[in-house]
Design a protein around this nucleic acid. Structure first.
Length: 259
DNA sequence: CGAACGACCTGTTCGC
DNA sequence: TGCGAACAGGTCGTTC
């Protein structure tokens, strides 16, 4: 579910609520989730995002890292409120709690110490990432879409936004990265910035069950130009939007104007 | 080595 | 209507 804009939305909202709060208690309701000792009592000093990871900085220098995968959500509620369905873990603060809700149970959390892990991937919102992408993509015979979704290369883009970015850039998801011109890469970079920035402004895409920290839907589903529009007319050229499976993922594009 | 595929889970939607 | 198959925002380990 959550790609970069959804995670960024949660981070901003979390930051406004939990920084300088103390974690009064943790309840784990799903045996798949585990957490080392001594998180209880820690004070939250920061909330940041790394790709699709939510990183909560603690008092003692360690970091609590949450990845919501496909269906994970975070919910802010008063302590006395009833726990929602598919509740997996609860962080109790002073008067409120942060709840991890996740029907498919893919979400993970872990505790990291020491310095930042450095794997060389750039954040999708880093300015002027085109140079990095060209350097990494120029020799690969690999579909552009899978390249953009590779978190080891560029962090934050998932299936929905990959489709939207490629549409904006006018490039086919199947194009091999090795064949792209510098202009193509500049278009990709521009599309990444435009799509993700707008999606953050909209607080994400509520196609089905995405909700922000306060249970509100996002608005970017109203801005989608190709995702989920199979068989409908392309807004740009009038051709019918096509859908196929690429790397096992539903992939929407316009065969008329994405070359 | 890079790239493709199945697995991890549960819920919802689609087709017969 | 009922039931099984296909599909869903993401990654990871294994295989080719």
């Amino acid at each position: 579910m959550p790609e970069l804009p959804e995670v960024e939305t949660l981070c901003r909202q979390l930051r406004s609520k939990i920084v300088s709060s103390r974690i009064a208690g943790i309840s784990i309701l799903d045996s798949r989730l585990q957490l080392p000792e001594h998180v209880k009592g820690q004070q939250v000093i920061s909330v940041t995002r790394r790709g699709k990871w939510i990183v909560i900085g603690l008092d003692d220098g360690r970091r609590l890292e949450i990845h919501l995968r496909m269906t994970g959500r975070l919910l802010w509620q008063e302590k006395e409120a009833a726990l929602p369905m598919h509740c997996r873990l609860v962080f109790d603060l002073y008067s409120h709690q942060v709840v991890i809700v996740d029907p498919r149970r893919f979400a993970t959390l872990s505790l990291a110490g020491g310095g930042e892990g450095h794997d060389g991937a750039v954040d999708a919102l880093a300015s002027r990432c085109a140079e990095t992408l060209i350097a990494k993509g120029c020799k690969r015979r690999r579909p552009l879409k899978s390249f953009l979704m590779d978190q080891g290369i560029i962090r934050g883009i998932g299936n929905i936004y990959a489709c939207e970015i490629l549409y904006r850039a006018g490039l086919s998801p199947r194009r091999e990265t090795a064949g792209l011109s510098p202009d193509d890469w500049r278009n990709v970079e521009k599309a990444i910035g435009a799509v993700l920035t707008k999606a953050i402004d909209c607080r994400g895409t509520s196609i089905s069950d995405w909700r922000d920290l306060f249970g509100n839907k996002g608005e970017y589903q109203k801005e989608l130009l190709v995702y989920g529009r199979e068989g409908q007319k392309c807004h740009r050229c009038g051709e019918l939007v096509h859908r196929e499976r690429l790397l096992g993922r539903g992939t929407w594009f316009c065969p008329g104007c994405q070359m």
